[in-house]
Nucleic acid binder design. Structure first.
Lengths: 132, 132
DNA sequence: CATAAATGTCTTGCGGTGCAAGGTAATAGC
DNA sequence: GCTATTACCTTGCACCGCAAGACATTTATG
């Protein structure tokens, strides 16, 4: 019961990832071929923690099915199961470019809405001391 | 048929709104009391088009149930059904503050990932050799 | 009163997707 | 063999934006 409201922070992060997680993977793949397990670490380093394999692998599969990436296998350098590396296709590169633009436009619009204090509420130079 | 691929743009917008649409409403309500129908117009003005009533009303109901906002009825100035105005509660103001911080942190992390050309810029000047 | 238009509110059902949990497989060391 | 590590993949749930449409209230027209 107390949890229902305070779960909101991690909960929000999950929701925020929607619509942009695929773009992050695309961007990371654009740098160089990457394998699934690597994304979890890479995204954590970038400050996007809590992105788990349960999100990554299905998404990678979706993107491959959509023709945005393709893949090849290579033995692991660390010993263990062989890695499946993903590369950008042309369609993937195009989607990344489009997505970057969409993301940029979107964040500007949201940030403006969130920081709306300027246009409708200009503060007087005096300090407003009165409380109700 | 030509629509199938370009549907991804609107599709992405939908997903991007998750996790931040409630914050936008909270911010708008923070300025002054607002009624549901008004949000559609306000968000469109802010550049967030395509946000429809089917998103707004259920969300408003959820937020009221969560105690983030409360509401009162007032007759419409334009003639028609009475409006239901929403106001911020203390919990709502707190959620807004937390959410703004989360949003800010999140966008920085994503933007860094999307524009990652700098940090791995240490790539040697030689070009990659294609295998196969 | 009946009808319609305008203004708003609210509900239903669908679809996409992040994620916890759990399973599979390959390699290395004991 | 057995266990640990690395890595991949699947299932099922839960959440939420949204199109579509039902419903309520006021004003206007006749």
């Amino acid at each position: 019961m107390t949890k229902e409201l305070s779960a909101s922070h991690d909960q929000r992060r999950s929701q925020l990832l929607r619509g942009v997680l695929d773009l992050c993977l695309l961007a990371l793949i654009g740098e160089r071929p990457r394998y699934g397990y690597e994304f979890v670490e890479a995204l954590t380093e970038s400050g996007l923690d809590l992105v788990s394999e349960g999100s990554i692998y299905p998404l990678l599969a979706r993107m491959e099915r959509a023709g945005l990436v393709d893949s090849y296998r290579a033995p692991s350098a660390a010993g263990g199961a062989p890695r499946k590396y993903y590369r950008l296709t042309e369609a993937g590169a195009a989607e990344l470019a489009t997505g970057r633009a969409t993301w940029s436009t979107f964040t500007v619009a949201v940030s403006r809405t969130l920081d709306d204090e300027q246009h409708s509420h200009h503060e007087q130079h005096g300090h407003h001391e009165q409380h109700e």
